[in-house]
Design a protein around this nucleic acid. Structure first.
Lengths: 133, 133
DNA sequence: TTGCGACTACGAAAACCTTCGTATATATTT
DNA sequence: AAATATATACGAAGGTTTTCGTAGTCGCAA
């Protein structure tokens, strides 16, 4: 098997993890239903994927009851950060700036969210004050 | 074959496209050299990939001379946008806001770039004025 | 207790990606 | 003209990811 700590979830695995992070520990049935709100996907497909993720240590599960309940093992920010890192390198030649411009330009973001981003930028600028690398 | 218009380039294909966008139409040899500055990759590997991309309509080529010259068919912004779309859906449950926060928080962005982003946000806010959907 | 519905387990196919070996053509040099 | 260097074409191996069919288990209602 591969190095476990560097196990980047695949797209499909990420889809499952997002549901779990949003909704808390869930059954396969629930997760499959959520996914099917976005695209068609067979029940056993989701099941199999989750069994693999269990082996990969991306999930844990409670199997005392008949219906198994799964939960993510890794923390959301860390995982998303890992993937962002890779995506940025591979698809945006590492330019966070270009990625952000695209993301903001093409997607609806509420005023409140925009304000929050501005606040973050101000903070970053204050921190960077003096060392304009 | 699959729907051509939605042909998302893969990671390796993206590597090739980036070289082309940066340097203009190029030969396989040139591109393979550029890639080898970052990682080892056989010549025929790059060649094969580019032939596939030709079929997929990601590239065009000029083959009147002995050495074929390839050029990207789609433009950079559109392509990156397509990939972002997918990444956002699969890995950030569609939340551009969260993605931007992560990207800004974890990567060095120059003051000038931060300013540019702020300007974009101001513009977006002005546009949204009145219809807070 | 039989049958039905909902669940897990798992092998294996299908699809997709990346890599490379080999064959072949075409210029250039000696 | 032969040898050399550099191209393209393409099949196929090897790996990973995704999908699904089939089999077996368990609880519950008729």
């Amino acid at each position: 098997m591969k190095n476990i700590s560097s196990n980047r979830p695949t797209d499909s695995e990420m889809e499952i993890l997002e549901v779990l992070w949003e909704n808390g520990p869930s059954s396969v049935r629930f997760i499959n239903n959520e996914i099917n709100k976005k695209r068609p996907c067979g029940y056993t497909t989701t099941l199999k994927l989750m069994q693999i993720m269990l082996k990969k240590q991306l999930l844990t599960r409670e199997d005392k009851t008949k219906v198994h309940i799964y939960a993510p093992l890794a923390d959301r920010d860390a995982t998303e950060g890992l993937l962002l890192e890779n995506f940025l390198t591979k698809s945006f030649s590492g330019s966070a700036h270009r990625l952000v411009m695209q993301a903001l330009g093409n997607h609806n973001t509420t005023d409140a969210e925009l304000e929050e981003i501005k606040k973050l930028i101000d903070e970053l600028e204050r921190k960077q004050y003096g060392n304009d690398e």
